[in-house]
Amino acid sequence: MTLPNVEPRSLRAFDSAEIQQAVAQLRSRVTSGRRFLLGVAGSPGSGKSTFSACLAEALGSDAALVVPMDGFHLGNAIIDSTPLRQRKGAPDTFDVGGYLSLLQRLARRDEDVVYAPDFRRTLDEPVAASLAVPAAFPVIITEGNYLLNDGPRWQQVRAQLDEVWFIDTPHDMRLARLIERHMLFGMDRAAAEAWANGPDAANARLIEATRSRADRILPWL
C-alpha cells in the first residue's frame, strides 16, 4: 500500500491487527445500494487525516472518499477581530449547521455529485466546493475533532454517522506533530509551542472527554 505524503511509520501502524480487524468488519457492513458514513474523531495532531487517507486506500479507490469536517471552519473574515480568533479550532468556530446539511445530503445519496468544501492549510481558510463526491462511492469517511461532542447540533451530526472511530495517539507524539505542523505553515517555534499548549490543548481536553462515546478506539502512531 503506497500513499503520497504519508510517513512510513504511519503505514506500518495501519497494519496492526486491531486496525485490520476494524477494516474487515467495515467491509462486511457495507451493503449494495446503501451508503456507509464513517466518522474518524481524535484530538489535534492525532493523525486523523493520515489515518483516513490510509483507510480510504485500503477500501479501494472506487469505494471510499474522505470528506473532512475542517472544510467548515469559519472563514478568517468572520473570526478576525473577534475573541474567536484566539480560539480557532474550538467547537463554536465551525459552521456545524452547514456540516450537518452536507452529511444529510451525502446520506441521502440522491444527487449525482455533491461538492464539499475543503480546508487549505497553506491559506488557513476553507475553500468551497473543492471536493467532488459522486453518488457511486459507497463509503464516505469524514474526519474531525467534534464528531462525538455532546452539543445539540453536534449530536445531530453524530446521528448521521453509522459509526465513529476514535484515534488514540500518545500525547507527546501529538504535541510534537502539532508544533511541527504549525511551524511548517508559518509560525516560529515559540508561537507554535504556545498555540499547541494553549488553544490546541484546550480543544484536546474537550475531545478526549468524548472518546467513550466512540464505536471503536484505535491506537495510532
Rank of each mutant, 00 (worst) to 15 (best):
L3V: 04
N5Q: 14
N5A: 14
E7V: 13
P8D: 08
S10N: 14
L11G: 13
R12V: 15
D15N: 15
S16A: 15
A17R: 03
Q21K: 14
Q21T: 14
A22Q: 12
A24G: 09
A24W: 00
Q25F: 00
L26V: 05
R27M: 10
R29M: 05
S32K: 08
S32M: 04
R34W: 02
R35A: 11
F36Y: 15
V40C: 07
P44N: 10
P44G: 12
G45Y: 03
T50C: 07
T50H: 04
T50L: 03
L59Y: 00
S61W: 03
D62M: 06
D62W: 00
A64F: 06
V67E: 06
D70Y: 03
G71R: 01
G71Y: 02
H73V: 06
G75Y: 00
A77W: 01
A77L: 05
A77V: 05
A77Y: 02
A77P: 02
D80K: 11
D80T: 09
T82P: 08
Q86P: 05
Q86R: 11
R87Y: 02
K88T: 09
P91F: 02
T93W: 06
D95F: 03
V96F: 13
L100T: 05
L102K: 10
Q104M: 07
L106K: 11
R108G: 10
R108H: 12
D110L: 06
D110C: 10
E111S: 11
Y115N: 09
D118A: 12
D124M: 11
A129Q: 15
A129M: 13
A129H: 14
S130E: 05
P134L: 13
P134D: 12
F137G: 11
I140H: 04
T142V: 07
E143Y: 04
E143F: 04
G144R: 09
Y146V: 08
L148D: 11
W154K: 10
Q155D: 06
V157G: 11
A159K: 11
A159H: 07
D162W: 04
E163A: 14
V164N: 03
D168T: 04
H171R: 12
M173L: 15
R174K: 13
L175C: 10
R177Y: 08
L178S: 05
L178H: 00
L184N: 12
F185Y: 14
F185I: 14
F185Q: 10
D188L: 10
A190Q: 14
A190D: 12
A190M: 07
A190F: 03
A191G: 06
E193H: 10
E193T: 13
E193R: 13
A194W: 01
A194M: 08
N197W: 01
P199I: 01
A204E: 01
A204F: 00
A204G: 05
R205Y: 04
L206N: 12
A209Y: 00
T210E: 15
S212I: 10
D215N: 15
L218H: 03
W220F: 15
L221D: 15
L221E: 15
